[in-house]
């Protein structure tokens, strides 16, 4: 028997898996609250004043360095989380060639991550 470690290249899956795990944990701890606040309470003005969604307030948040970090972490990690799960499910469904599926999932997450960084820089400090 040949040694098991030979002819056994290391997978690069850990990179995607850790991003998936980080996104899964952040969304598990704060996801319901975020959706409730930005998607339901603020738009209907329930317990949260109108000014919460004002342009100036949102801009101030996105210009604050901590606000920037929060936005980047939430948007990028949430995309990486969904990308991993969608990729594996589409692979289970044999929905297409692996490369196409990877571009449509990990590729989108990578593009959104870069775009988010670009937008946060463009918005200024």
């Amino acid at each position: 028997m040949s040694g098991p470690a030979r002819d056994n290249p290391r997978s690069i899956s850990p990179i995607f898996w850790l991003l998936f795990g980080a996104g899964g944990m952040v969304s598990a701890l704060f996801g319901p609250a975020l959706i409730l606040i930005t998607g339901l309470l603020a738009p209907t003005g329930t317990g949260i004043p109108e000014s919460f969604l004002s342009y100036d307030h949102a801009l101030a948040f996105a210009r604050n360095p901590i606000g920037k970090l929060v936005l980047l972490a939430v948007i990028a990690l949430f995309f990486w989380h969904g990308a991993e799960r969608l990729f594996l499910t589409l692979k289970d469904m044999k929905a297409g060639p692996s490369l196409v599926l990877k571009l449509g999932t990990y590729g989108v997450a990578a593009a959104v991550t870069l775009a988010t960084i670009g937008l946060l820089l463009a918005i200024g400090f």
Partner: peptide, 14 residues
Amino acid sequence: LDAIHGEDGVWSCT
């Protein structure tokens, strides 16, 4: 760990 770090190791598990 070296024996199972490939695609056919733990990383096939979903």
